[in-house]
Design a protein around this nucleic acid. Structure first.
Length: 322
DNA sequence: AAAGTAGGCAACCGCTCATCC
DNA sequence: CGGATGAGCGGTTGCCTACTT
């Protein structure tokens, strides 16, 4: 469908519009339009979108050109499914900042705010719908933090354990060795980075890609202690995030020197220290043993069908204990 | 196989805020 | 100071596709 701005049914509006405005195109972009925009920006650079649209001969608003460029035509836009690592990062960053899509997008190189927003509105809200609760409710936030996000971590670990045993990155960075061992109280895992899970307590980053990145404080997470710093989403903001405040202001930037951009995301995630917050709170939910993970548990390859009977039961137990 | 339905996503709109001239 | 412009955000629309009936 190719719409032209200015409705025939609204003569008053039409009369007020200039001839150029009436010619403005809407709807899907054509290949020719894309090429025109790309070529113009390649020659003249971006910015000043309204004049750019006119100069490039595009019968589009500057706003439309800007959106098309930022969300689709930019060379560094990533296409394809949101990865597990990206999902994890989105969940955590949204828990901190709410619907600050643009800010969240800064930490997912190549992903646009629109894409993240769409992901949230379709996938995440679908989970809330399955649980019959509001996406902004404490109930759902707890489910995300204590069920969904730990599962994502485990799925990432499981995927890494099968996909990468010993690999060497093309850029010559240190090889990634993935080993998952599970004991009663501790699970150690190397997954781009190293960390440990301590039973019922916290997840403590140790080394970031063979670099010790700042000081990390191990802390216990206590859901009731909401007075100790919580954001608009009602989730815990750990002191670690304050220690690493610089990371908030320094977007990841490009991934052009790394063939595995997910490495960046997960590194960011751990730099935030958010993995601290997604293990079971001590004593409050002892039946949730996130550390005894079997690689072949049914949820690992079930895609979005996360809320199976088992997890629904856990969700119910979580609510009973909160 | 055809029709209906639901989900995903690109694109848009309206609004607000910041910056520049 | 005020207008123009850019940028960001929430919400919505409409198309396409996959799935279901």
């Amino acid at each position: 469908m190719e719409e032209v701005k200015g409705s025939e049914n609204n003569s008053n509006i039409t009369m007020l519009q200039t001839e150029d405005e009436m010619d403005l195109r809407r709807g899907p972009w054509t290949v020719d339009e894309d090429l025109a925009l790309i070529n113009y920006i390649a020659t003249h650079g971006e910015g000043r979108w309204n004049s750019l649209a006119r100069s490039a001969g595009l019968k589009r608003t500057g706003k439309s050109c800007r959106l098309r460029w930022l969300n689709y035509l930019r060379p560094d836009v990533r296409r394809g499914n949101i990865t597990l690592e990206e999902q994890l990062l989105i969940l955590e960053l949204h828990s901190r900042w709410g619907n600050r899509w643009s800010k969240i997008a800064q930490y997912l190189p190549g992903r646009t705010d629109n894409e993240i927003k769409n992901y949230w509105r379709t996938r995440v809200q679908k989970h809330a719908k399955q649980l019959k609760c509001d996406v902004n409710s404490k109930q759902f936030k707890d489910a995300m933090r204590y069920l969904w996000m730990p599962r994502l971590v485990e799925r990432i670990q499981a995927a890494a354990s099968t996909a990468t045993t010993t690999t060497t990155n093309n850029n010559g960075s240190p090889s990634v060795t993935t080993t998952i061992t599970s004991t009663n109280n501790t699970m150690s895992c190397n997954l781009n980075t190293n960390f440990e899970v301590h039973s019922g307590n916290t997840l403590t980053p140790i080394i970031m890609n063979n670099n010790l990145c700042g000081s990390y404080v191990t802390q216990s997470y206590t859901p009731e202690n909401s007075s100790n710093g919580s954001d608009s989403f009602g989730t815990q903001v750990s002191p670690i995030s304050e220690l690493n405040q610089d990371y908030y202001n320094v977007p990841v930037g490009s991934n052009n020197n790394n063939n595995n951009p997910n490495c960046d995301y997960f590194q960011q995630a751990q730099q935030f220290g958010f993995l601290d917050c997604i293990t079971s709170p001590t004593g409050l939910f002892p039946q949730m043993d996130f550390n005894s993970v079997e690689p072949n548990t049914p949820w690992i390859n079930q895609g979005d069908n996360f809320w199976n009977d088992e997890n629904m039961l856990l969700f119910q137990q979580l609510n009973d204990n909160m």
